[in-house]
Design a protein around this nucleic acid. Structure first.
Length: 558
RNA sequence: GGCAGGGUAGCUCAGAGGCCAGAGCAGGGGACUCAUAAGCCCUUGGUCGGCGGUUCGAAUCCGCCCCCUGCUACCA
């Protein structure tokens, strides 16, 4: 039974609303967050899982101009595709909002003003490149030119892809704007800066004792602290974004990287208002017992281990992250996902053609928790057929069809005392709840799934050893015991697998004769009593044909 | 260039000082037949990137080198 309910904030990366989600983002953040949230809900904990569309930023504006539409229209379009993907994949947000709500604007402006009052935000002049034709300041990435180090003519303002050196965009020779091809000119502009340098020591003292952080996350963060944090400009010369809450800055906006992370807080407040309990968010943000887990891809680590904590420290009174279980990348058939080369599996496409649970299964099995991992469609088909269908789906099917045929569609009556191997089998399932749960709490989801699937293998072995298909003709009570135990094992496994495979686990659980909602049944085996009527089952998973591999691979890079 | 992660069986990956280095798949063999010809048992296969070092003992710690990936902070 669950002990006292815990407060768990599941904070998930805010996707940038200028393209649909691809598989790598699901594997890196949304799926692990969902598994984690589902487990804690079953355990009886109070979970708040939030995120939203990052609707601001230069690429959104640029895309809008290219399409002759507004930034609002662009981000709203992708926001809808995100919601459809989450629905189709069973990603169970309590709230998935956007950064373009009045609430988020207000929370951001409050944080801005408070940090400024505390002296952590100051104003300074900056020299930036201005595109006279497009009439706007350019982010470094939007400037191209000749690399001052190696002479490569295709260098970008932030980095040269040829020699790998980083630079200031002002150092580029023969600079030209990627927006208009005009020659950018340096101009002075006044901006607000976040005083990150003031937090270096406090952050180090906070990060160093975090023994439960992943080594990659912790080492990377400490490395940056060792080098020393620089203050960063948090405003831009833009008109699409959150206004600066001070007079005289109409042509400037608060920049995305500063305000997007505030979304975790503003979304919690928005959710509370929607629930009709406007103060509820305080439970996750002010109670020191509450834990916030921030699910990210590795490229997002510094924003969640340094910048956001610094902002929270400066603001005061709010919980810092408990863990930032950032994942590495999932590559596609050996190469990094890329929008421009269309080297990715786009989630709207996947959802339109396939079932959610097989992908959830495969992505969890290869989840890049320690190093990059590779997705191939051949591996997808193999794991579906050999593991989901053969080991788990087939276990459910063989147990239930055999029982129904031989015991009048009901759970058979076991003897008063179970055989030692039957007791051991049930004990193994019960023990798996602590084992799988422990792995999930440590955010080791690949191990957690492996432990659950290991029980399915034990169950197949148990069946094979007791051979109820033979016993049913000679020793009916022996067969009755085996199938009674097997059904209860399947019932327990359905619960164990629910965080990973929510759609099919619900079915498997009901096939065992369980009534009600699997989510409400809790993180423990639901015992099915003898005599319980068994509904007619159907296979949980489809066996996939190898032709799918060629079909899907032909879509890559096209 | 700097920082971080990784290089372990044919393939995809676990393991982070000490039982003969593991799993799944692929390969070989077997008993069974309830089940989506699925499941179960046995089995072939590895100088754990290279070279040195520490240790009674090293994939596991240290140093140097080679290779892959990511980040390098006004893209979020």
């Amino acid at each position: 039974m669950p002990d006292t309910p815990r407060l768990i904030l599941v904070a998930v990366a805010w996707p940038y609303a200028n393209s649909p989600l691809h598989m790598g983002q699901v594997a890196g953040a949304y799926l692990p967050a969902d598994i984690f949230a589902r487990y804690h809900r079953m355990r009886g904990d109070r979970v708040l899982m939030v995120s939203g569309s990052d609707s601001h930023g230069t690429p959104v504006t640029v895309r809008a101009e290219a399409e002759g539409t507004t930034p609002e229209a662009v981000f709203q379009r992708f926001h809808r595709t995100f919601l459809e993907t989450f629905e189709g994949m069973g990603i169970s947000f309590d709230l998935f909002t956007t950064t373009d709500t009045p609430n988020h604007h207000a929370v951001t402006q409050d944080m801005f003003l408070r940090l400024r009052e505390q002296g952590f935000i100051y104003e300074a002049e900056q020299t930036l490149l201005f595109d006279p034709k497009a009439g706007r300041f350019l982010p470094d990435r939007y400037v191209e030119g000749t690399c001052p180090f190696c002479g490569d003519p295709g260098a970008r303002g932030d980095q040269c892809d040829n020699c790998g050196r980083t630079m200031d965009a002002l150092e580029l020779k023969d600079p030209r704007s990627r927006l208009s091809d005009a020659t950018p000119e340096p101009r002075q502009s006044t901006h607000f800066f976040l005083k990150l340098s003031a937090f270096n020591e406090r952050l180090r003292e906070w990060v160093e004792p975090q023994a439960h952080w992943r080594p990659a996350v912790k080492n990377f963060t400490l490395g940056m602290l060792r080098e020393g944090l620089h203050d960063r400009a948090i405003t831009r010369d833009l008109t699409w974004g959150i206004p600066i809450p001070l007079p005289g800055y109409d042509d400037k906006r608060i920049y995305v990287w500063f305000e997007a992370v505030i979304g975790y807080l503003s979304a919690a407040k928005e959710w509370s208002s929607i629930q009709g309990t406007p103060e509820a968010w305080r439970d996750w943000w002010e109670n020191p017992e509450a834990r916030g887990y921030y699910f990210q891809g590795k490229d997002n680590v510094p924003f969640h281990t340094l910048i956001w904590p610094a902002m929270l420290m400066g603001y005061g009174g709010l919980n810092l992250p408990y863990d930032v279980p950032a994942n590495q990348y999932v590559t596609m058939s050996g190469s990094k996902a890329s929008s421009s080369r269309n080297w990715a599996v786009w989630m709207p496409d996947y959802v339109s053609r396939h079932d959610p649970d097989p992908l959830r299964y495969v992505l969890t099995a290869i989840m890049p928790e320690t190093s990059d991992s590779d997705f191939t469609w051949a591996e997808y088909v193999r794991r579906n057929n050999d593991e989901l269908v053969a080991r788990w789906g087939n276990l459910v099917n063989r147990v239930l069809t055999m029982t129904r045929r031989n015991f009048e569609d009901r759970v058979p009556e076991p003897p008063a005392t179970l055989a030692p191997e039957s007791q051991a089998m049930l004990a193994a399932v019960d023990a798996a709840f602590a084992d799988v749960g422990g792995h999930i709490e440590a955010v080791q989801l690949r191990s957690a799934l492996g432990a659950a699937m290991g029980v399915a293998q034990l169950a197949n072995r148990y069946l094979d050893e007791r051979a109820p298909w033979v016993a049913v003709r000679s020793d009916r009570e022996h067969a009755a015991e085996t199938l009674y135990v097997a059904i209860n094992v399947v019932s327990g496994l359905a619960t164990l697998l629910q965080p990973f495979l929510p759609f099919t686990s619900r079915e498997a659980w009901a096939f065992c004769g369980n009534a009600g909602d699997i989510q409400a049944a809790g993180w423990a085996r639901s015992t099915v009593a003898a005599g319980t009527p068994l509904p007619e089952p159907h296979p949980l998973y489809k066996k996939l044909d190898d032709a799918l591999v060629d079909d899907e691979e032909s879509r890559l890079g096209r």
